[in-house]
């Protein structure tokens, strides 16, 4: 078995006549937390959709856990949380999670475990539609944690969360990686980049760089990752 969780080679995605992902190639090792960073609209979500296998792609290959992206054996191995919560608003948190757990054939005990992991225990019996924005996105994240996914693809899971909760979630991500799970987490806030082992920096559909946070700092001679990203953009534009 290869030690690579994701291999993307020459990926191209066209949406509405525009190339939104342009010739992107990279590899992600198992058991790591990789941050996918870039401004909003740069193609992060489309790239994630291609990895999960719900995106029609124009070219290139995406291999996930040794199988072509979107193939049937992967459907129990990937936990995916979209940026907009995709969870039934007219159900209670527990009811919605119980349903997704049965579709995944995950044990019933998973429901309370994931509610706990995302810190929603006090709202377990609230209607999903009544939750605040941050709670709603945590309920959405909880669905992705059901079962034992080998790969977690999380699209902006920490948006709108208070700093304490954000910290707790990043600790959870690190814990999951230690158990051997692979995480791909997108964000548009650079201060979260420091918590990842590797970074994929995207801009306008292309991949600017793949590096570790320290590697990026060294390469650009900046201590602040936001500044490092800016420097990188200038270098690429000058070239």
């Amino acid at each position: 078995m290869t030690n690579l969780a994701i291999v993307v080679d020459g990926l191209r995605v066209n949406r509405g006549g525009r190339d939104v992902v342009r010739d992107v190639s990279f590899e992600i090792e198992r058991g790591t937390v990789t941050g996918l960073l870039g401004p909003s609209g740069c193609g992060k979500t489309t790239l994630m959709r291609s990895i999960v296998g719900v995106q029609i792609v124009a070219g290139g290959t995406v291999t996930v856990l040794g199988e072509p992206a979107g193939s049937a054996p992967l459907r129990r191995k990937i936990g995916y949380a979209t940026q907009n919560p995709a969870i039934y608003a007219d159900l209670m948190v527990t009811e919605a999670l119980r349903y997704f757990a049965s579709v995944l054939r995950a044990p019933a005990s998973d429901v309370s475990r994931v509610i706990d992991e995302v810190g929603l225990s006090s709202h377990a019996n609230a209607m999903v539609g009544q939750l605040s924005g941050g709670q709603h996105s945590r309920a959405n994240l909880a669905v992705a944690l059901l079962g034992t996914p080998e790969l977690l693809v999380l699209d902006e899971p920490t948006v709108g969360l208070d700093p304490v909760l954000r910290d707790e979630l990043w600790e959870l991500f690190a814990r999951l990686a230690k158990q051997g799970r692979t995480l791909l987490v997108s964000s548009h806030v650079m201060d979260e980049a420091g918590r990842c082992e590797r970074l994929l920096l995207m801009r306008e559909g292309g991949l600017l760089a793949t590096d570790s946070p320290d590697g990026l700092r060294r390469r650009t001679e900046q201590t602040d990752l936001e500044q490092a990203f800016l420097r990188l953009i200038k270098e690429v534009e000058a070239a």
Partner: peptide
């Protein structure tokens, strides 16, 4: 939610 279900078995 349909898309989410379609990523599941």
């Amino acid at each position: 939610t349909l898309e989410r279900l379609m990523t599941m078995p």
